[in-house]
Amino acid sequence: MTTATKGPAPSPAGPATTPLTSRRLPSPGALAGTGLTALRRRPLLAVLLLMVLVFQLTTGSFLDTGNLRGIATDAATLAVVAVPLALLVISGYLDLSVGSTLALGGLVAGWLAASQQQSPVVAVLGALAAGAAVGAVNGVLCCYLGLSAFIVTLGMLTAVRGLAQQLFPLPLSGFGSGFAWLGGSRIAGIDAPVLIAVLVLVTGALFLALTPAGRHVFAIGVNREAAHLSGIDVRRTPFTLFVATGVAAALAGAIKASVLDSVVAGTSGAGFELTVLTAVLLGGVALTGGSGSVFGVLLGVLFLGCLQNGLTLLNVPTFWQQMAQGTALVAGAALACFGPRQTR
């Protein structure tokens, strides 16, 4: 992500994040041997680099700064949601409601900024609060009442979408220049959404590697009962992750609303949940819980972003594009699976 603004795609991201994210190797000494070792441990990284190479050779403009910026900005919202969702999946849960939460977040932010003339900060905080509320409902139902996360969040996907459309039946637009800052401003040459995504990625990686709660996330995902008997609060940690996922989805919604300067309740974030989940799973997070890394998620996000962008650059007809996308996903997953596996 960081790299997209600078140059030859994701390789510089490697050294920055590897030692933090590969959870069995937190020792800083490990980052010396990146290069080939990283490729061997992360087949998806090799696939990604190959894809970038192919796109650059065929289009000639894939690695242009402008295009990389575009990819990075597109992938940013995906990454913001993918990281907390990945943690949630590692702890053995799932959130399918993020697409609707994203819409709700964008609408609340837009409504506060446009109709209520609130400051951008208040608008964003309002969106985050809405996202936290959705996450908390998910969390209470799944973690404290023990309902199936699949069913609960699938239900919330529809319910929150309905709520969003009921509250904001008409499209919102014209949020003002203050709010445009969130999606449009640049700090040190980096777009704000990308910066936010990097912040989320680093926070996620540090959380997993360096905090006790990060260990608990894995423990709960691997063996919830054993974690409970080890005295770990097996409800609060995933609950917090549900809230974090809701907040992140709402933040992504606010970013998208700011970038587009408009939100439509019915279509904003439709299908987003599956895209994020795809990125997360492609990044090596097991749906069964207990394994995964933030670096992997970053790769998954970049893979999707580059694929989409490259196919558009190549001007591939729509339905061929869909076929190519599906095939590339399966191929990516297969390579990641049959290639030399990272030791779990």
């Binding site: 069995r24 006790p212 709660a213 260990r215 608990h216 894995f218 423990a219 691997v222 063996n223 009962e225 054993a226 974690a227 008997l229 080890s230 005295g231 770990i232 207990g290 394994s291 779990r344």
Partner: peptide
Amino acid sequence: RRQGLFPSLSAQDNTLLPTVR
């Protein structure tokens, strides 16, 4: 297997889990 162990986690994680905090 059901109540004690975290099979895919490292030996160190297994023993120190309640203690990391």
